[in-house]
Amino acid sequence: MTVSAISRYEFKARDRVENFHGNQIVYWHWEEHLMFCAPIALPMPPSMPFRAALETVLPGCYGAHPDWSKIDWSKVTWMLDSRPFKPNMDASLAENNIGHKSVLRFWTPGLQGIDGIPTC
């Protein structure tokens, strides 16, 4: 449907990618660890290798959680924009089809929150 308006009503998306100075926004969410209350938003260059995001950026976001250092990345399951996803670790975000405002959700088998409580 369309908005009711008294005249032409068209605006550019305020959050389009060119407003982020060469970065794109990527949302990450570590499932079953709701001590982190919500998914996080990170500005990242599309050329960043996937591995670099995991090894250099995410530890600063999630490292405070005792489960973080125990993650075996080869066992992690992923969803990218609501579809199952297998990242190519050495390819860039863009080559992995991770675009502006993509959502990456990941599950860490065996690590489901402190004492196995997913809200922790």
Binding site: A13, D15, R16, Y27, H29, E31, E32, L34, A38, P39, D81, S82, G99, H100, K101, S102, V103, R105, P118, T119
Partner: peptide, 17 residues
């Protein structure tokens, strides 16, 4: 209550959450 509710839509080629 243990899984975040994600919903999204696309409009003019842009993703919204």
């Amino acid at each position: 209550p243990t899984t975040i509710c994600f919903r999204s839509a696309e409009y003019k080629g842009e993703r919204y959450h």
